[in-house]
Amino acid sequence: MARIDPAETREAIAALAPWLFDATVTQPPRPALARAVRLSARLLAQESPGHSVEVRVPPFVAVQCIEGPRHTRGTPPNVVECSPRTWLRLVAGLDRWDDADIDASGTRAAEVAALLPFVPLHPDAGAEVG
């Protein structure tokens, strides 16, 4: 798999800033949303490689991350799942793990929280984006 460029990921997320800051703004086009979600989840897996936690952001992506035992069959023992908007708000530092609507199961799932945010957006980003 090709390396994920953090700058490209930041750009993809920043393009969605108005919607991330304000839920009343029209949801971005599906291709832009899919790009930001996929790049950010794959960047997480790239920066924290491993197979002990699966992060799912349906319908766009599922990645495995965090060193530990490899999962090979059935439902993984450590899973984090959330909506695309929730995921991107977590990645951007706009929501805290404890306050977000996340389905997390397994003893290691919460380790993802320690990796967030990794593409922080600032409140003025919404004004800068088209």
Rank of each mutant, 00 (worst) to 15 (best):
T107W: 11
P84C: 05
V80C: 05
V37P: 00
F118S: 08
L115R: 12
R30Q: 15
L43N: 00
V61G: 05
A92S: 11
A15E: 11
E8F: 10
A12T: 01
A110K: 10
L33V: 10
L43D: 02
D95P: 11
A109Y: 01
H51D: 10
S83A: 13
A14Y: 03
P123A: 09
D22Q: 10
G126L: 07
L16G: 04
V57S: 00
L39D: 00
P76E: 05
I13P: 01
R35V: 03
G106D: 08
A7V: 14
E11Y: 09
N78I: 06
A17P: 04
P49T: 13
C82K: 01
D22W: 11
A62Y: 07
G130D: 15
Q46A: 08
P117G: 13
R73G: 11
G130S: 14
R73P: 04
A36W: 01
R89K: 12
L88W: 00
P59T: 09
G74V: 13
V55K: 00
V25I: 12
A113R: 04
V57I: 15
V37H: 01
R85K: 07
V25W: 06
A14N: 04
A2M: 08
P29G: 05
F118E: 03
P117L: 12
L16T: 02
G68A: 05
G68M: 03
A7D: 13
E11M: 13
R85H: 09
F60G: 06
G74N: 05
R96W: 11
A23S: 11
D101L: 13
V25Q: 14
A32W: 11
R3P: 06
L115N: 02
Q46N: 10
V119N: 01
A110L: 08
H122Q: 14
I4M: 06
A12S: 13
W19A: 01
G106A: 15
N78F: 02
A17L: 07
A125Q: 03
R96H: 14
A41N: 03
L43F: 04
A7T: 13
E11S: 15
V55M: 12
G74K: 10
L33M: 11
P76N: 09
P58Q: 13
E111S: 04
I4E: 00
P6V: 05
G50P: 01
A114E: 11
R3N: 06
P28L: 14
R35K: 15
P59Q: 10
E67A: 11
D103I: 15
V112E: 01
E11F: 09
L94G: 00
T107G: 15
L116W: 04
V79K: 03
L16F: 06
P117S: 10
R70A: 12
A7M: 15
R42H: 09
P49F: 06
T72P: 05
L16M: 12
A23M: 06
Q27P: 14
I66E: 04
A2R: 14
A45G: 04
V119M: 11
L115I: 07
I13F: 00
R42W: 08
T72I: 10
A14S: 12
E54P: 00
E81S: 12
A32D: 05
A34H: 08
D99Q: 15
E111I: 08
P31K: 06
E111Q: 15
N78V: 04
E8L: 13
A32P: 06
A12E: 01
L39N: 02
H122W: 08
